[in-house]
């Protein structure tokens, strides 16, 4: 019977696909562990940075950085969208873009224009297709992102803020909750609200070297950079986790299909045999 052979080739092809998805799952799992370690390694810097910024805000500072001030009129809003370079990671990117687009819509309804800065190939192609105004982009960051790779991209957005071309800066990122869940999130970067430590509220100030403006400028820049860097590193962990889960379900689905096909194949084979026997028996009776 012709059907049986076709089904057999189909089963084999699905088995091959299953092998690939299985391999990808395992690769993603081992990469995820490394990405999680990287995420943990960036945390001390971020906490230290936050506490220094908190000290600054609580201290008696004579210079208030523009990143801490809310602008009254918002004419243009900047968005940094963090995504992956590669696909096959479930709905990770799309969910993130959905959140970003919803926030963008809210702003454009208020008459503000949107500038987009994309990190990762997926965001780039998505927002290009959408026809957004992409002012900076960065892709091919790899599995171990370096702050070096991001400085330029971040600077474009910070410069835009300094020069008044944008009045607010958001970041759309994925939050790593656990292996199974990644939470897309749109957070406000500038103006930023540092969490001040109330216990430190007394009258003292730093000795600045060379002077307060220069130091605080530098510090705020690094603060924003560290936030974005952390988002990128976290996104890396999210990507691997999402890919692992997606590939696991792909492997499971392939297994289900193989089982179903196997059943159909067995039936077809049995039907062919039965038919042959009845034909022989029928032929013998006729003689």
């Amino acid at each position: 019977m012709a059907g049986a052979k076709e089904i057999r080739t189909k089963i084999r092809s699905i088995q091959n696909t299953q092998k690939i998805t299985k391999a990808m799952e395992m690769v993603a799992a081992s990469k995820m562990r490394k990405a999680q370690d990287r995420m943990a390694a960036t945390r001390p810097y971020a906490t230290k940075m936050r506490s220094v910024i908190g000290h600054l805000a609580a201290g008696n500072v004579e210079y208030v950085h523009p990143y801490l001030l809310e602008r009254e009129e918002v004419k243009r809003v900047g968005f940094i969208v963090v995504s992956t370079d590669r696909g096959l990671c479930g709905g990770l990117n799309i969910n993130n873009f959905k959140g970003a687009v919803a926030e963008m819509k809210k702003w454009s309804e208020q008459g503000a224009e949107i500038d987009v800065c994309t990190i990762g190939k997926k965001a780039q192609s998505f927002f290009r297709r959408l026809g957004s105004n992409i002012v900076a982009e960065r892709s091919d960051i790899g599995d171990a992102p370096k702050l070096n790779d991001l400085i330029g991209t971040i600077k474009v957005m910070l410069d835009a803020y300094d020069e008044g071309r944008i009045d607010r800066l958001y970041i759309a990122e994925n939050e790593f909750v656990n292996t199974m869940t990644q939470q897309p999130k749109v957070g406000q970067l500038i103006p930023t609200v540092p969490d001040t430590d109330e216990r430190l509220k007394h009258h003292w100030d730093y000795i600045y070297e060379p002077d307060s403006k220069e130091v605080i400028d530098e510090l705020m820049k690094r603060y924003i950079e560290s936030l974005i860097y952390q988002a990128v590193v976290e996104n890396g962990a999210c990507e691997m986790a999402a890919r692992m889960v997606a590939m696991k379900s792909a492997t499971d689905n392939a297994g289900d299909i193989i089982n179903d096909l196997q059943l159909v194949y067995n039936k077809a084979r049995q039907a062919a045999i039965t038919q042959e026997i009845s034909e022989i028996v029928g032929g013998a009776a006729a003689v």
Partner: peptide, 19 residues
């Protein structure tokens, strides 16, 4: 990272160009 203002500028320029 190695930091210098004009170097940052160059990086920023590159990011724009990529866009």
């Amino acid at each position: 990272a190695i930091r210098a203002d004009d170097l940052d500028e160059a990086e920023a320029q590159q990011a724009k160009e990529r866009a």
